[in-house]
Design a protein around this nucleic acid. Structure first.
Lengths: 206, 206
DNA sequence: CGAAGTTCTTGACACTCGTCAAGAGTTTCT
DNA sequence: AGAAACTCTTGACGAGTGTCAAGAACTTCG
């Protein structure tokens, strides 16, 4: 019996890696639908074109699969907001674009983001998840900081909070809107927008 | 076979209700230890002085038990921060007291709060939980607002964000600190304090 | 005391879960 | 071509789940 890690290292043309990614994509779809607590390997396999046994051919166990999924998810998230920074001409434009982007993401990719929060919450209980979750959190923090610091530069005024604090603030607003929007509260998205638009200028000096 | 609801209504001396609360307390302890995803009724019973069957004598099913737990938890949370409002003499004192209280709660009652976030996250997936979760969220929002609005009054300056936004901001900071503190990051609590202390004044006008 | 009602335990049920081994099917290479 | 390696399916396993029914243990009250 060959080990999973052996299979990974042996292949040059990485069909093995491609299938892993494919299965992980199916897993992500299922996870975002059901949440971590109710997602089983059989359910994941059923939402793919393979049978449940194959998962143990490509992943050592459930933890490795989920961990891989989380990392895959991160790759998708990272570069999403950077275009806003790139195209912004004024502080005010950046401000409204950012608020609008968050609202759109909340509405359109809500199911994917609730999965992220679900997994981040698992890290509160399962030590295994913490390292990966904190790494993704760090990436998101940097993403937010690129926005916030650019906003400061465009305003000609320094930012008065740490990257970590800035991330915490906007993440809180986003998560709140996510729940309320899923619960069909009509004001969820506009509240998010105005909340973000009001908060951003407050991070400037005094 | 008598229905659960019948048993509730029949008793005047509410031994039935007391036992419900007792079992729910055990359940809360277990839930805060293991998280929603890994807590079973047998585990709950094992952490109580009763056997697993009794849970179905006092609760219709698992959902009713968990829901009852969440409501019980809310009752404990509600009045905790109001003394800070009551004893504050100056805006600055309120500011540091509030920041300190959040840090202390994060450190000492971290396991209980991770349960709250866990259940709130379940509401992102399970519709059944949403009503109760949103109700608790509302209560917490009001609690935060009592702090923030008092801070505004003590400063003689109006607050420029909605209660909902204020709650989202501080909740984000708290949640971030909770994860980092559980992961034994040394700066988690001081970062929370300074984050809160820096944010609060920014909610005042201009 | 003894009957009636209440509370709790025990054990079973149908089911789902993660895991794994045996082997069939497929591709790759000589 | 045939052998070897890889990929995937099938079916089983033991463990754990929520639920429930039968009845033991206990309390209440005539």
């Amino acid at each position: 019996m060959t080990e999973v890690t052996d299979r990974i290292s042996r292949r040059q043309v990485d069909k093995f890696g491609e299938r892993r990614a494919q299965l992980a994509t199916s897993a992500l779809r299922t996870l975002s639908e059901l949440g971590y607590a109710r997602t089983s390997l059989r359910e994941i396999a059923q939402n793919s074109e393979f049978s449940h046994g194959v998962l143990h051919y490509y992943f050592r166990d459930k933890v490795e699969l989920i961990t891989y999924c989380v990392k895959l998810y991160k790759a998708e998230c990272v570069t999403r907001y950077d275009q806003i920074v790139a195209t912004a001409r004024s502080a005010d434009q950046l401000r409204t674009d950012f608020a609008q982007a968050l609202a759109t993401t909340c509405d359109e990719d809500g199911t994917m983001h609730r999965l992220w929060y679900d997994l981040r919450n698992q890290a509160l209980f399962e030590e295994n998840f913490r390292e990966d979750v904190l790494e993704i959190d760090q990436t998101l923090e940097l993403m937010i900081w690129r926005i916030v610091s650019t906003y400061g530069e465009l305003s000609g005024t320094p930012i008065t909070v740490s990257p970590s604090t800035a991330y915490g603030l906007f993440d809180g607003l986003f998560q709140q809107a996510l729940l309320r929007n899923l619960a069909h509260q009509p004001n969820a998205l506009t509240d998010l927008r105005t909340g973000v638009e009001q908060t951003l200028p407050k991070l400037l000096i005094r």
